[in-house]
Design a protein around this nucleic acid. Structure first.
Lengths: 202, 202, 202, 202
DNA sequence: CATGAATGAGTGTTCATTCAT
DNA sequence: TATGAATGAACACTCATTCAT
């Protein structure tokens, strides 16, 4: 009589433990022992649900992305135009504890992706989705006349680049980046594309 | 008479070997044995010139920064205004093989800096210098009327963030970022601050 | 059901292997590899049961002391007075193979204790226990009139010092110290405190 | 024109540096680098005067013994009988800073001698000399009627053993062994062999 | 299913020794 | 004679992975 276990649920549980360890101790601190300890299971159980340790880390990355997408979906659903775009930007920079951790995780994977083709491919795919969302928001804001005309591809790349760059700087140089400063900078960039009447919210 | 060795020269030699290994195999691939192999010396020699392995990596970072600063100094010396600013931006994104490696190295250290206070402090200091140079270029371009007025602090942060963000994206998603595309994007951002007559070069 | 292993039993097993290596190859020969080889396990297993190598060595010392205490307890239980005291002395000098090894181990730790505060503290504590036993035996022999009156503290220190000193000499200069000679010497010291009628056994 | 160097003098210089390092940092802390640093010469010079590191350590032991013998010779020269014997005992236990170091060195070599035949042979030879001196002092005191009759061989071994045992205890358990206590204990042992009138000095 | 004991290759580091200058 | 650069084996320790129970 085998114990009934939700296989996917257990995988998520373990990957979430990995997510926590990475965002607290860095990716080099995310050893199998530490992930097992955080999950409350033994190290052996990891082997049941993942072939290799890298697969756990990859699943942690997926979970992080899924969480972000879910949250963004909920946040953006009632919003439109420039407001929605601003919300997107605010939510993807490390303004809150959760976003700080998400950014730490993302940065941790970047350096690994540089020497790991599979990982880079995963990031490429997920980044493309994220960028498509951003592009849609930009186009929608343009259509409502709340954002200046201009090549949406270029505007997307600029905004995407800025968001990741500011996120890095915010984590590495926290003394230079208060939360207020971070929103100010995003607003400043948006203002470059905003007709005078569409001022940022107070 | 003892064998004559320039101690600092040998340190640079070893740190340069570390630089190569990191930029080719990632920071996790930069083991002492690998650095020794790349340098052509045995592992024991590392102990002669560095107390700890971390000191070698840190020295590799310093060397990278010094190389960048030297190159930028030479490049910018004959230039002025917006042209100098554009040169700065072009030279700090991964357009060439050398800059690609420099960016890889930088990104490799970012994730470590997240959990290493000493490393973060080093990066903070060196980043401040780099940002000050960028700010001066912006102000100079504004004074010549080649760049729109506006808070230079904010413009500096936006440009600095964009440069690092685009650099990350260029390395992770090379299919999306040809060299041409990278310069186009930088030009697009500068154009947002450029009076109509100061068009980017063809 | 997991493999059932008595954690403490395995610790003892490994520490006993360390005990053997130290007593055969000296404390400098007691490398992790050698202890692992002697135990029949791989090097990695040591990390399961001990945090640091020093902890293994310390446990080997504890085991040695526990073995001695147990043996002395059994030996002394049916004995009394001067006879018990003599038994104690005979059993704590390297007369047998087991005691030779115990003495080697003890001496191996002495030199380390000179530059290791924690180790010295351990030895201080255990030595105090051993000395207290010796003192009780001396007092008991005095009470039975089998040992001359005199400050038991001083007699304890003299006998304790003599035992350790003779043990050292017996190991370093075995040609000078046959087993017979060793017992003669102990008897000679006891005789200094013994009324004429209480002659040593033949 | 070769530099004129007194080969033996230089050897002593280096061995004395080794002596200092051993007595300050323990025999495991006596690395070639540390000995070279203490001597003021480079590591390479050690190879000029000694074939192996062990030879330096051995020479340090010889120097220690020679120093002790010289000092004892000077001390004992004007003394006779029991007074000379007591002086010998007092000077060979760790009552002063110099003697503490000598004892540390001696103990450091003991544990090595257990697994090193050459070293044990050296210690055997030097110990025999030392014991002969002690025996002569005992016989002389007996001839003057200041020490009880008795087998001088046995008395020598007992006193030699006691001296080394107390020395060990004094270093390992300094809280139990003040200088006063150490002399008291030696006096107590001598008193066992002393006719009532020959009391120890105040 | 789950455990955690066991493996052994790989790590950073230390160090006696060699040797070109 | 003296230097100290260089070597490379050996060290304690870490860790992803395997597997008997």
């Amino acid at each position: 009589m085998p114990k009934i276990v939700d296989h996917d649920q257990r995988r998520r549980e373990l990957a979430t433990a990995a997510w926590k360890v990475i965002t607290e101790s860095g990716i080099d601190g995310a050893t199998t022992r530490e992930i097992a300890r955080e999950s409350g299971y033994s190290t052996g159980v990891l082997a049941h649900y993942f072939e290799r340790k890298d697969d756990i880390l990859l699943e942690a990355l997926h979970i992080s992305h899924a969480t972000i997408n879910k949250r963004l979906g909920d946040l953006l659903e009632p919003q439109q135009g420039l407001e929605a775009l601003r919300t997107f930007c605010y939510d993807t920079v490390p303004l809150g504890e959760q976003q700080v951790r998400e950014t730490i995780l993302e940065m941790s994977f970047w350096s690994r992706a540089l020497v790991n083709d599979e990982l880079r491919e995963v990031q490429r795919t997920e980044s493309a989705h994220w960028r498509a969302v951003l592009r849609e928001l930009i186009v929608a804001a343009q259509e409502r006349g709340e954002l200046a005309d201009g090549d949406p591809e270029i505007m997307t790349e600029l905004l995407a680049g800025l968001i990741d760059g500011l996120s890095v700087h915010a984590l590495l140089y926290p003394d230079r980046f208060t939360k207020r400063r971070l929103t100010e900078l995003i607003d400043a960039q948006l203002a470059l594309w905003t007709p005078a009447r569409a001022a940022p919210p107070a």
